[in-house]
Amino acid sequence: MKCKKCGGKAVINMRQHNMGLCKDDFIQWLQEQTQRHIEKQKMFTLAEKVLVAVSGGKDSLALWDILVTLGYQADGLYIALGIDEGIGYSAESQRLTEAFANARDLKLHIVNLAGEYGTDVPTLAKQTKRGRDKPCSACGLVKRHEMNRIARDFGYDVLATGHNLDDEAATLFSNTLQWNGDYLLRQAPVLEERNGLARKVKPLFRFYEREMAAYALLRGIEYIYDECPFAEGSTSTYYKELLNQLENQSPGAKQHFYTKFLAAKKKGLFAESTVEIIPELHLCPKCGQLTSARAECSFCKMMERVQKK
């Protein structure tokens, strides 16, 4: 297959775009498209401070690489969750993230859950009602809380995550299967800043997961190949596989499913575009973060329960 731009040897075939590209043209295309999406969605400007949530995986490290290459003020945040499961998952993720930051002389914030709170995600899941066998719920809560905390404490304007189109399509599929109206209304590539909560953006929301893996490999980014041991056999992975079967038969199916959802939402198909979709928020008396609860937030309640045991 030949590169659509230069006629050289293609390294990736993007069937949904009917386009194959060589290494250099693919890297340039992906960076330019990211820039275009950031500007079109008004995610952030060169003058704003961006905090990139990095996990050691391909998407977040690739996002950090792209933003820095494009000239944005992007620092990283790694949250050490204490997931080992016999393979040292968190330790290896942290090593790769630190190596990435050091090699490029980038600023990386590290939050160590054990050091900050004297616990880890598997323990939180076991000792609270969240998760039972799967700590994903506790993990998500911890990540959201700590990302907001670091963004607020260090004065970042924007919090960027490496969610790709496959992540977004799988979430949309899940929420559609359950007709989860609130979540459908809130799913978007940009969540505006609100009462001290940093704006949240997903600059990779238009790229397939396969494109992000190719970008990371072509840029020589060392990332953790293993997925989180707790994510194996997860519903979101199953939905991604289902959507890939659909994509295999009908190239562009994933893209259409997600982008046409965004377009329909913008037109007010689900609700008036001016409708208030975020519940009333209050300040948690303990940590000072916003919460929909009238007392302590879910994170503080969870930590309190664990510390009492």
Binding site: M1, V11, N13, Y208, L217, L218, Q245, N248
Partner: peptide
């Protein structure tokens, strides 16, 4: 194996499915 779920690498170089 769904082509959409993998990247193919030969001698360190990415290659297309054709």
């Amino acid at each position: 194996i769904l082509p959409e779920s993998v990247i193919c690498v030969r001698n360190g170089d990415l290659i297309t499915e054709d």
